[in-house]
């Protein structure tokens, strides 16, 4: 690898870290603006003013905001996300297994949806403006247009209630056999796949169609290549950058946007955890989950940027 690429990649990563810092400040500021008082929430309405003052001093709530921010940030960097107000449990420990669950669900959904979307995109280009293209585009649009909770309930109704193939409630626990775990998440993964499929497929189609106008596609055609090998060998490599970008955005959505799907299927992931604690006004948990979501989002976008840089032969092989 040559130096211009390294430099660009380093720039992107540095920018990402800076962005994450800014987001952390925003999250902290946002939760500060919210009405209510942590000491009050812990001790309840009946607390005496003296007890409240003591607890505030103990929690360091009397310090100026920026000191509390850096204290919180310092904790985050060392892996200490604080304690949940509602349960008094360490947030990092309770998030641990849930984050893993969410990532597993997202990973499975991605494993199905990304290759499927790209393949459908390629097929749509190959048979563009024909019935195959229209069918693929139409179905993909329809599946995106349905809200995810609607898709979720449809899946539950048919696969869990009527035909009883998959469980309607995705209970997973530690030490669960892998295949059972897969079966448990089949429905939420399907729902997620249907939601993200269309955008990736349509972007693949558009990006490749754009490249199909190029002179080098004509060159390939005049070499006698078949339509599908032209698309695969000559168009796809040049359409990679926009496709990666939209894929990464959708992967980020798979991790961050699962809230509704997790709640429908009662899946013990990050989304459900977040919803529970928003209801309980548990500010430290909301902060921690918000920060993790932001980190996932920013990381995936950095990966997309870096992948697009590496996909560009002009940057990979400078003159």
């Amino acid at each position: 690898m040559s130096s211009p690429i390294l430099k660009l990649v380093a720039q992107r990563i540095a920018l990402g870290i800076l962005l994450l810092l800014a987001v952390s400040a925003l999250i902290f500021a946002g939760t500060q603006v919210l009405p209510g008082d942590v000491a009050q929430s812990i001790l309840g309405q009946a607390a005496t003013p003296a007890a409240l003052a003591n607890l505030r001093a103990e929690l360091g709530l009397n310090d100026p905001a920026y000191i509390r921010y850096f204290r919180w940030l310092g904790g985050v960097v060392t892996g200490d996300l604080g304690t949940a107000l509602s349960s008094g449990q360490d947030i990092a420990t309770s998030i641990g297994s849930r984050l893993w669950n969410t990532l597993f669900l997202a990973f499975c959904a991605a494993l199905v949806s990304v290759p499927l979307a790209i393949l459908l995109g390629l097929l749509a280009v190959r048979y563009r403006n024909g019935w195959v293209d229209k069918l693929i585009s139409g179905l993909a649009l329809a599946s995106t247009s349905f809200p995810e909770f609607f898709i979720g309930y449809l899946l539950v109704y048919f696969f869990a209630v009527k035909w009883q193939i998959f469980p309607g409630i995705s209970t997973v626990y530690e030490g669960m056999p892998f295949l059972e775990r897969l079966q448990a998440i089949a429905l939420p993964a399907t729902a997620l796949t249907l939601v993200v499929l269309a955008q990736m497929m349509r972007m693949t189609r558009a990006a490749i169609l754009n490249v199909m106008q190029s002179a080098y596609v004509e060159t390939a055609e005049l070499k006698g290549l078949s339509a599908f090998s032209i698309i695969r060998k000559h168009a796809l490599p040049n359409a990679v950058a926009p496709i990666i970008n939209v894929v990464m955005l959708n992967l980020a959505y798979l991790v961050v946007g699962v809230v509704v799907v997790e709640v429908i299927f009662v899946y013990p992931g990050m989304g459900q955890y977040l919803v529970d604690h928003v209801a309980k006004r548990d500010v430290p948990v909301v902060q921690a989950v918000g920060l993790i979501f932001a980190a996932v989002y920013i990381t995936l976008n950095i990966v997309a940027d870096v992948a697009s840089i590496i996909a560009n032969p002009r940057l990979r092989h400078p003159k």
Partner: peptide, 11 residues
């Protein structure tokens, strides 16, 4: 082709 620069696949 007239423009080989465009007729070669950059990838």
């Amino acid at each position: 082709a007239q423009s080989a620069a465009a007729a070669f696949n950059p990838a």
